[in-house]
Simulated assay, not measured.
Amino acid sequence: MLAKQELLGQLTNAQNNYVLGLAAMSLFAEPSSLDHLHKSQASFGSYTVKFDQVGSLLSSEATRQDAMKEFLTMLLRALLKESFEIVRDYAEKSKQDGVFRSQSWYQFARMIRNCISHDFHFRFTPHDMKKLPITWNNRTIEAGLANQPLPIAFLGYGGTWELFQEMERFAVTLS
């Protein structure tokens, strides 16, 4: 079984990755980063990956918006999905899954996790439909969202961070 310190360490890693990604987004917004990207590369084993592809994506306003949206989507997915899975796994293995499922944010986080784990669309089971609407932190998941994409603005940077913090605060309370 995962030790409590490992659980908290994994949550810290997920948090750090999100913050690193936000920092990268900030750096990508700097004009000087484009020159650097056009000249840089990563080498590992027998492979070399040039970053000029990223520089080109960010050089055009049209492709920058899409690239940054997709990057933010990946960050959101990584932080929330990983954190939910880590905490759920620990709660189940430590026989605290009932406490986990009773959290005020649990159903909201579970439905967000399901949405971002698949195709970023809300897909509700009959069980989910019985739970709707679900509100957390002034955000409501309702039946009308069925088969609709999750807009980034629904959570944004702040909501993503706040939902992570809910999971992290809960993890600290687990034995």
Rank of each mutant, 00 (worst) to 15 (best):
G156L: 08
G159H: 07
N137I: 03
P126Y: 10
P151L: 02
G144V: 02
T125A: 14
T140P: 04
R139M: 06
K131N: 09
P133L: 08
I141V: 11
D128N: 15
G156Q: 10
I141R: 04
Q148K: 15
A146S: 13
L145Y: 07
R139F: 07
T135D: 01
T135V: 05
N137E: 11
T140L: 07
G144W: 02
P149H: 07
Y157V: 14
N147Q: 11
R139G: 02
K131E: 12
N137L: 06
I134K: 02
L132P: 02
T135E: 13
D128Y: 09
A153M: 03
E142S: 14
A153W: 04
N147T: 05
A153K: 10
G144M: 04
L150H: 09
I152T: 07
Y157I: 15
M129N: 06
D128L: 10
T125Y: 14
P126C: 10
G144T: 10
L155F: 07
P133K: 06
A146F: 05
I134F: 05
G158T: 14
H127P: 00
L155V: 09
L145F: 12
G159V: 05
D128I: 08
F124A: 11
D128V: 08
A143P: 00
A143Y: 05
L155W: 03
W136D: 00
M129D: 03
G156N: 07
L145R: 03
P151I: 01
K131C: 08
L155S: 06
D128Q: 09
A153R: 12
P151T: 04
P149K: 12
